[in-house]
Simulated assay, not measured.
Amino acid sequence: MDLTTTVAIDEENSVARVALAGALNTDTAPAFELRLQDVVAAGHELTVLDMKDLDYISSAGLRVIFKAAKQTKSSGRKLAAANRKPHIDKVFEILKALPDMAVFSNDQELDDYLDTMQRKAKGE
């Protein structure tokens, strides 16, 4: 599955909205990271990731988001995730519960677990 991103800038309020549609995974994360870096580098006070149409996220996608969050925070700005579907929200809940614990032996094991949890949350 592909990932499509659309960026809308509200200069007056210093907000960038990045809408994601599709899958943010190992295949799509590198291009998304470049796009998100450009948005973050523009220096808006708030960058919003609109996940209304995001269908899947893997550890590679999470790494891109967490890297951008760290960058915005270090420069006194904010990154927010909006409109998360329940199965995407579940991934964020899992990782919030295990912030610094390495409980998976490798990225593939983590992705398999996240895939299973997203399917479960979607009722598949």
Rank of each mutant, 00 (worst) to 15 (best):
D53M: 01
D53E: 15
L95P: 11
M117F: 06
Y56W: 15
L114H: 06
L46W: 07
K67N: 10
A8H: 04
E93M: 07
R17M: 11
K90F: 10
A23L: 13
D111W: 08
M51R: 09
K85E: 11
P99V: 05
K67S: 12
K90C: 07
A31R: 15
M117I: 11
L24D: 07
G22M: 01
A82C: 13
L20D: 06
A29H: 10
T4N: 14
A69M: 00
A81S: 06
L46V: 03
V40Y: 12
P30G: 00
D55G: 04
D111P: 03
F104P: 08
Q118P: 09
M51N: 08
D115W: 06
R63D: 03
N83H: 15
T116E: 14
M101S: 05
K85M: 15
K120E: 11
A102C: 12
A41R: 13
L24W: 06
M51L: 15
T28D: 10
P86S: 12
Q118G: 02
T5Y: 02
L34S: 13
K73F: 08
I9N: 02
L20K: 11
A69S: 05
I57F: 01
M117H: 12
T47G: 00
G61W: 04
D100F: 05
D2L: 10
D38V: 02
A97M: 13
P30D: 01
I88C: 02
I9R: 01
K85S: 12
E12W: 02
I94F: 14
A16G: 04
Q37A: 15
I9L: 01
L95T: 10
E11N: 12
K70C: 07
L24S: 07
F66N: 10
T28L: 13
D115Q: 05
H44Y: 01
V64N: 06
Q37I: 01
K96F: 07
G43I: 12
K90A: 09
T116I: 02
Q108N: 13
V40S: 09
L49H: 03
L54Q: 05
I57W: 02
G22T: 04
S75N: 07
K120G: 03
I65P: 00
V64Q: 09
L24Q: 01
F32V: 05
A81Y: 15
V103Q: 08
T28H: 07
G123I: 15
K52I: 03
L79Y: 10
R77W: 08
N106G: 11
T116K: 15
V39G: 04
T6C: 12
L36T: 11
L34E: 15
V18D: 11
K78H: 14
R63N: 04
L98H: 13
A42K: 14
D2I: 05
Y56A: 02
L54E: 07
Q37N: 12
T6Q: 15
D38S: 14
D111H: 04
